[in-house]
């Protein structure tokens, strides 16, 4: 059974300038353990699609299931962790306090909370920063803390909406590397929105190319790259070949207009 499955998914916003087709005829199934990237120009519906999976948007047509049930039910069952473009940590809580936030809401015991905070801090390489406040940390560290927050309650699915978009290239490379290691260790299913071609190719097992007006999927590219990926893999011919295909896909979507 696929973890996430969309059939003929449609989402139309009614605006003053008439209807806007944010998503139209979107079909996709994501299997357990997949790392799926969504790439495309702004307005192509990649973030909207991710928000549909999280029940933050409600489709106007078609069907989507998460773990075999509706996204709303999956949300109620706390089936996924969500990472936004900005870290969005609460400034009045320490890093540890921020990671505890979902754990408190979901009713974990105090000891369990402490243990999990310790574990995920280690996972994102932030040991010793639990007592700091977010504003005492760099942007990259804040974003790592927000990933730790999404990992804390150990949902099988991780949805990430341009999590590294606001960071500089060097920090971003570093975090990409760490994210891959984390994915390999935890075997989570990851949905990842980005507008960077190298990032999408480097991270994913599958790359979903989308294009706007109406927002739709134009290509799905399976990556032949091995699961073990050092940063240098980006200079190999295979990597460049896939990046080329993604670029072609984006261009084709663009020419349709």
């Amino acid at each position: 059974m696929p973890v996430i499955e969309a059939r003929n998914l449609e989402l139309t916003f009614q605006t003053n300038d008439g209807p806007v087709h944010a998503l139209k005829d979107v079909n996709l199934s994501i299997e357990k353990g997949d790392f799926v990237s969504f790439i495309g120009p702004s307005g192509c519906g990649k973030t909207t699609f991710l928000r549909c999976m999280a029940a933050l948007e409600h489709p106007t047509g078609g069907e989507i299931t998460v773990n075999g049930v509706s996204p709303e039910q999956a949300r109620q069952a706390r089936a996924y962790g969500y990472v936004f473009q900005a870290a969005g940590l609460y400034p009045w809580r320490t890093i540890a306090g921020n990671i505890k936030l979902p754990l408190e809401i979901m009713g974990f015991s105090k000891e369990e909370q402490e243990k999990r905070v310790k574990d995920v801090l280690q996972l994102v390489d932030l040991e010793g920063f639990g007592g700091k406040y977010p504003w005492q940390l760099s942007g990259g560290m804040q974003q790592r803390a927000s990933i730790a927050r999404a990992l804390g309650f150990d949902a099988d699915i991780l949805l990430m909406d341009e999590p590294f978009g606001a960071l500089d290239e060097i920090v971003r490379d570093h975090l990409n590397e760490q994210l891959l290691a984390l994915w390999a260790r935890t075997e989570k299913t990851i949905g990842f929105v980005t507008h960077s071609i190298p990032e999408a190719v480097y991270l994913s097992t599958r790359i979903v190319v989308m294009s706007p007006r109406p927002g739709r999927i134009t290509d799905v590219i399976e990556s032949p790259l091995p699961k073990e990926r050092p940063l240098e893999i980006r200079d190999t011919p295979e990597f460049i070949e896939i990046a080329h295909r993604v670029r072609e896909g984006l261009r084709a979507g663009h020419l349709d207009e």
Binding site: R51, A54, A55, L56, R75, Q76, A77, R78, Y80, G81, Y82, F84, A86, G88, Y90, W92, L101, P102, E104, I105, M106
Partner: peptide
């Protein structure tokens, strides 16, 4: 965004109020 985050945790009105909106 912070309200959406609370949504993804399926937080109740009271939880979102005391943990996010009041502070």
């Amino acid at each position: 965004m912070q309200r959406d985050l609370m949504q993804t945790y399926a937080a109740s009105y009271g939880q979102a109020f005391f943990k996010l909106r009041l502070p």
